[in-house]
């Protein structure tokens, strides 16, 4: 087993082991922290497909994260108030079923990414960063000013949504749901990276001219990557809202986009397990340093600076060494 494979295995096992130890010690709060890390890692895995594989520096991924959150919030809100979402031309009712909510979140995220991506991907570099940021902020201010779903105050959901056969209010069972989804998405993202699509997408990051010369369109490759990325991040958003039983415009704000990017950069851009390492570290720091000082972000900033300056491959890069060209 290579060193990086071993690191990946440790990272993968870290969350469930933590959760199980916490279960044995009867520490439900720790289980919730592990759940939060798994969900944020999922959002990072989504962003990493655009950022790491495609080289698309999106500062608007909070839009997808928040859309997923609101997909959950709006559906559950209508279910708990027994009001239909719409009556004409056909009746749509709210729901408390997680699978339906996830599907809605994924579709909403994919569609939003298709629209935002189709426009933003016509630009590149700093313009792409600014335009994704602008789209994200548009949604943020829209959510603030739309009173039907709580506006600035957000939406509270009283009881966590249900999953057939499981008690989602039990922390360890909800953790299991989040972790299984994370594992499935990691598997999909890994296959994607080594597929013909992944090869072409990463080539378009390195040299778009080369990709055009072999008859492939970088724009289309990037757009699809952006859509997949947005859909995954939206799914994470739905789970995050369910974890907190609350959704608010904060989820759509550009701070959230920055946070998701921090997970990816801390862990290692383009590394499959990078976001898992980054999100876990983030939660750990937030928990430990946050207890010491309200200004713990200073230390986070310092760490980020160190990683960017001295460990370009993130934590995984520092531990595993430079990625060997593999075939």
């Amino acid at each position: 087993m290579t060193r990086s494979a071993l690191i990946n295995l440790v990272l993968f096992a870290m969350l469930p082991v933590t959760a199980l130890i916490a279960l044995a010690l009867d520490e439900p709060f720790i289980i919730t922290l592990a759940t939060k890390a798994a969900i944020l890692a999922l959002a990072g895995v989504g962003l990493n497909i655009a950022l790491g594989l495609g080289g698309l520096v999106s500062l608007g991924h909070a839009a997808f994260f928040g859309l997923g959150g609101y997909a959950m919030g709006i559906l559950a809100h209508h279910a708990q108030t027994f009001t239909p979402l719409m009556e004409a031309p056909f009746l749509i009712e709210g729901t408390k079923s997680m699978p339906v909510i996830w599907l809605t979140a994924v579709i909403a995220g994919a569609l939003a990414a298709l629209l935002i991506g189709a426009l933003s991907l016509r630009t590149s570099g700093v313009y792409f960063i600014m335009i994704t940021l602008a789209f994200g902020q548009m949604l943020y201010y829209f959510a603030i000013s739309w009173p039907a779903y709580g506006g600035e105050d957000g939406l509270s959901i009283y009881v966590r949504n249900g999953f057939p056969g499981l008690n989602t209010l039990d922390p360890i069972q909800f953790f299991a749901i989040a972790f299984v989804i994370l594992a499935a998405v990691l598997f999909i993202a890994g296959r994607l990276a080594s597929s013909p699509f992944g090869l072409a997408l990463a080539a378009a990051r390195q040299n778009p001219e080369r990709v055009e010369t072999v008859g492939l369109s970088p724009y289309r490759l990037r757009l699809l990557a952006f859509v997949i990325s947005g859909a995954i991040t939206a799914l994470a958003g739905a789970l995050f809202a369910d974890l907190n039983r609350f959704v608010s415009p904060t989820m759509l704000s550009w701070h959230m986009s920055g946070e998701i990017m921090i997970f990816v950069i801390l862990g290692g851009v383009g590394r499959l397990y990078g976001p898992v390492a980054g999100a876990a570290l983030f939660i750990l720091l937030e928990h430990i340093l946050g207890g010491l000082s309200d200004f713990w972000h200073v230390y986070l900033g310092l760490l980020l600076l160190l990683v960017v300056l001295f460990a370009r491959g993130g934590m995984i890069g520092a531990l595993a060494g430079r990625e060997v060209a593999h075939d």
Binding site: R191, L192, S194, S195, P196, G215, L216
Partner: peptide, 13 residues
């Protein structure tokens, strides 16, 4: 891959 035009495959290594 470009010659074959099979880039829209997502799971086969």
């Amino acid at each position: 891959v470009g010659q074959r035009g099979t880039v829209w495959r997502f799971f086969k290594p």
